[in-house]
């Protein structure tokens, strides 16, 4: 098993945001999590990537229990993620913003910084190369020297992807990666996700845009009120009674 959630629950006070969810991510595929607003999708992501401690249950990555690790340790293991909103340094270039993405693979400390040791020079070089590489990968090489404050919403999404990729991940969790961009751009971002998978990176995303998900995903899990109500291929999900009921009966946000 690659990455697996076992009987995972998270509640805030009396509110059960995620309730006893079992889910396994398929390696090298595009996995999607869908569900009506407030279904607990983001919370599920947050628990897996260490932002929240699970109330009960486990998250297993390549055989190790990672449910008690802080986010930075989880990133170190090769699990990256993006957020719905990404706050960047607006008065710096796209490139400058992405260099730090590879920081976790370097060892330079304060001493290296002050004396500019050989190690720190090499590592800085490595980070910069990585930044160029991932910017190229996400199709932003041309905008590397532009100020973040002057770029479009869709380009900011790509920077978020680039930052996640700069950590050298085996799996990336994308939280609504195409929210707030137009259909053409959505299509391009979808292609980018496929490109990630081709490169051997497993993708797991939360999405609202059903059409796109049905085309893109290899495997889908549906959450409703924090509980898993269905799991399977797009075809299976399309014909699942409970899913149809949840979407028709619940808030019609899909």
């Amino acid at each position: 098993m690659f990455l697996e959630a076992k009987n995972l629950s998270k509640h805030f006070g009396g509110l059960h945001a995620v309730k006893e969810v079992d889910f396994s991510v398929e390696k090298g595929k595009i996995n999607a999590i869908i569900g009506p607003n407030g279904a607990g999708k983001s919370t599920f992501f947050n628990v897996i990537t260490g932002l929240h401690r699970p109330s009960s249950g486990q998250v297993i990555f390549k055989g190790d229990d990672i449910s008690k690790l802080p986010p930075n340790k989880i990133a170190l293991l090769g699990i990256a993620r993006t957020f719905q909103t990404t706050n960047l340094f607006e008065q710096a270039t796209v490139f400058e913003n992405v260099v730090v993405g590879h920081r976790l693979r370097t060892k330079s400390n304060l001493f290296d910084a002050i004396f500019r040791t050989k190690r720190t020079k090499q590592e800085e070089e490595k980070c910069k190369e990585k930044a160029l590489e991932v910017l190229h990968f996400v199709g932003l090489a041309h905008a590397a020297e532009r100020m973040v404050g002057s770029i479009s919403q869709e380009e900011k999404k790509r920077i978020a992807f680039a930052l996640a990729l700069a950590t050298d991940p085996e799996i990336v969790f994308l939280d609504e990666p195409t929210a707030g961009v137009n259909p053409d751009e959505t299509e391009e971002l979808a292609q980018l996700m496929q490109k990630m998978v081709q490169k051997g990176i497993t993708v797991c995303l939360i999405e609202h845009k059903m059409q796109m998900i049905m085309k893109l995903a290899d495997k889908i899990m549906v959450l409703n009120y924090g509980e898993k109500i269905a799991e399977g291929t797009p075809d299976e999900i399309n014909n699942n009674e409970e899913v149809i009921k949840a979407y028709l009966g619940g808030s019609a946000s899909a």
């Binding site: 986010p71 930075n72 957020f83 706050n87 993405g101 920081r103």
Partner: peptide, 13 residues
């Protein structure tokens, strides 16, 4: 400074 949550998620302690 820019985004503490993001910083932590890219592996910064």
């Amino acid at each position: 400074r820019n985004d503490e949550q993001l910083a932590q998620s890219i592996g910064i302690s």
